[in-house]
Amino acid sequence: MTDSAKIAAALRPLGDTGRIGLFLLRMLGSLRPTRSTLVNTLQQTYLVGARSLVIIMICGFFVGMVLALQAINALEQFGASDQVSLLVGKSLFRELGPVLTALLFAGRAGTSIAAEIGLMKATGQLDAMELMAIDPVERIALPRFLAGLLSVPLLTAMFNALAILGAVVFSLGVMGLDSGIFWSKLQTGVYFDQDFMGGIWKSLVFGGLISLVAVYFGYHARPTGAGVGSATTNTVVLSSVLVLIFDFIMTSFFT
C-alpha cells in the first residue's frame, strides 16, 4: 500500500461522517410542512415505533425487576433498602432507559429501515420515484428519520414506565418494602429537569442518530442482496457504537 492509499484509508471514517452529515442536511433541506410528509411520518411512526413497543415493554419490565433485585441486595448490607426506588429511578432515567431503548431500537427498527430502503433501491423503486419527479429523500428517507426521532423518546418513556412497574412488583410485591417510602423517595430524589428531561434529550439524540444511520446505509446500499445485508449489519454496528459514544459525551458535558 502506498502512503497516499494509507492516508486515504485513515481518512475514510472522516469522509463517512461527512457524507452522513451531508445526507442529514439534504434530508432537512427537503423538509416541507405538507400533509403528505405528516401522513408518511405518522405511518412510519407506526411501522418503526409501535411495532417496537412490545419488545421494549417486555425488556423494560425485566430490567426494572433485575435493577430492584440488585439494588436491594447491595443496599441491604447498609440497612438502606429503603433507597431502592431512588437508585432504580435515577439510573433508569439518566442512563439505562435511554441507552437500552436505543440499542433495542437499533436492532429492531434500525435494521428494518435499512433493509427496506436498501431493497427499494435494489428493485429500482427509488429510481422510479426519482424519474417520476418525486424526491426519494423527501419521500422515503425523511419520514423514517422523523419517525425515529419521534419514536425513541416515547419508547424510552414506556421502557422507563414499565421498568418502574417492574421495580414496584419486585420490591413491594416480592420483598415487601413499604410503598409510601418507595414513591416518596422517587418524588423527592429524582429531579424532573436534570434526571427526567436529561434522559429525554438523550433519547431524542439517540433516536436521530439511529434513524439517520439506518436511512443513510439503506439509501447508499449496493443494489444487491449482499449489499442490503451489509447495510443492515453496518446500521446496527455503527448506531450502537454511536449511541454509547454520544451517551458519554452528553453525560460528561451536560451534567
Partner: peptide, 26 residues
C-alpha cells in the same frame, strides 16, 4: 420529468402500496 413516462426493468412497483396506489402515486 413530469412529462416523461418511464417503464424500468422489472417494473419497479412500490412494494408497500396496492396496485391502485401505485398507479395513483404520480
Amino acid at each position: 420529468r413530469k412529462g416523461i413516462g418511464i417503464l424500468l426493468q422489472n417494473g419497479a412497483l412500490f412494494t408497500d402500496l396496492t396496485v391502485f396506489e401505485n398507479v395513483a402515486t404520480p
